[in-house]
Amino acid sequence: MKPKAFDYLKVSSAEEAVVALAQGGEDARIIAGGLSLMPMLNFRLAEPSILIDISKVDSLNYIREADGHVEIGAATRQADLMRWDGLADKLPLVNAALPYVGHYQTRAKGTVCGSLSHADPSSELPLCLAVLEGEVDLQSTNGKRTIPADQFQTGMLSTAKQAGEMITAARYPTAKDGCGYAFTEMAQRRGDFAIVALAAIASAKSIKLGIGGVADRPTVREWDLLEGDALNNALNEFAWDLGGYDDIHATARYRRELVRRLGRRVIEEAKTCRS
């Protein structure tokens, strides 16, 4: 189980990286933490022509709070975000979700933006970005653009990122007064890919619920403050709309069941932690 041969370039800036991406063509890949990409290389599921390593790009390694967002650079590791002082206060949802992201050992090297870029439908960080309505900065030799979360992830392992583009940063909106945030997920073992991941935001007027692991991308729905049967009906409708799929770990029906049952749990939890 060894990778196919590839060229390797360690860059020191995003500018250098996008030039290499442009030169490398369709099969050039950015590597940051490598936690998602390296297993695919070892299985030869992916055979890039060149790996462009941004893990040592200092200018992409930052956590910055500004204008109601926390901006996280493309080389910033999940563990760094987890250790960031402002996390519980500014990003309570992400704070609740991060312990579910892989393991201590994978978070130590895995990056936040790498997880967004990989676009696994079960992943926690893309789900949080979708529910919080964050955005992603992309850069290529043609310039920069910003994509809102709901347009970023387009399907299974697929994003709006075009060949030649790389993620330079992601922005997670900070917590709003009066809102409660809650996260939970069901995985068979600690740290496994979620069968269903759920992120909820409750405000004085509405409830927002994002679901990962059921459709081919994180999906978000917002309702007025519902209670009792109305909430159950809304969750049921959401579950059926998401559909779900069968794999060896769970049936589509089980996934829908979790949307209904854990959806309720996570919404209740979000309501109780409204500030």
Binding site: M38, N42, A108
Partner: peptide
């Protein structure tokens, strides 16, 4: 493939999977 952890080493103070590096 990064799951079992038997190859875990510390590189510049960061714990890493040797097989994913």
């Amino acid at each position: 493939h990064g799951v079992c952890g038997a190859c875990t080493v510390i590189v510049d103070g960061t714990v890493m999977r040797g097989c994913l590096t």
